[in-house]
Amino acid sequence: MLKVRDLDAFYGPSQALFGMELAIEAGQVVTLMGRNGMGKTTTVHTIMGLMPARRGTVEFEGARVDGLPAFRIARLGLGLVPEGRQIFPNLSVRENLVAASANRTARPNPWTIARVFEFFPRLAERQRNMGNQLSGGEQQMLAIGRALMTNPKLLILDEATEGLAPLIRQEIWSCLARLKSEGQAILVIDKNVSALIPLADRHHIVEKGRVVWAGSSQALAGDKDLQHRYLGV
C-alpha cells in the first residue's frame, strides 16, 4: 500500500532523514517508534508532501506520490491526525467534521458525521462547542474523527496519545483496535510500547533519521535489550 524507499529530507542545511525505509500493507497497523528528534514526524510530513524529499521515493498503491502537492496526496487517501491535534479553533465540532468530509476513494459504507458521533459519543454531546472549548481528549477524538471523515485508505496518527490522561489514552487505543478490526490500515507514531505491541502487526524503530530495527510484535516483545537501547523503556 505505502512504500517509502531511501528517503532523505532536510531542514535547511541540516539533514533529518537518512535513507528512511517503511512499508505498510492493506489492513495492517504499523508503528514508527523512537525517541524525540529522531525523524518520526519528519517522515510523516515528507510522506504527506508537507515537506519535500531531497532523495528517495514514496509510493502509494503503486504510484509515485513524492513531489505531488500536499492536497493531492491527501486526496489519494492519506489521512493525517497531526501532532498537537490542530483542531480548527474557530469552527464548531460539527463544522470541523463537515469541513473535512469527503469520500474521494468511493469507499463503500463511508464515514459520515453520524458514524463518527456513534464512534465517539462524546463528540455528539459537544457538537455545538467551538474547537477551542474542548478537553485534550475530546480534541484528540475530534482530530481522529476529522481524519476519518476524509475516508482515508491509510490513517496516520502522529503522537495521538501524548499529553493525555491514562484513561483517555486507553480509550484512544481501544478506538484504534476497533478501526483495525474493520480493516483500516494505520500508521502509528507513539512511544507507548506496551500498548502498541498488542495492536500493531509490524514495528519500525527510528534512530537519527533511519530505521535501525524492523520486525513483528513478537520479536519486539521478546527483545528487552532492544527496547531499552532505543526506546528507553
Binding site: 492536497f71 491527501a74 469552527l91
Partner: peptide, 21 residues
C-alpha cells in the same frame, strides 16, 4: 462547506491542505 474551508484555513492553512483542500 466552501465557507468552512475558508474559515478553517484562516486558523490553520497547512492543516486544511493536509485534509485534501
Amino acid at each position: 462547506r466552501f465557507g468552512l474551508v475558508i474559515r478553517g484555513a484562516k486558523s490553520n492553512e497547512l492543516r486544511m491542505t493536509a485534509l485534501g483542500f
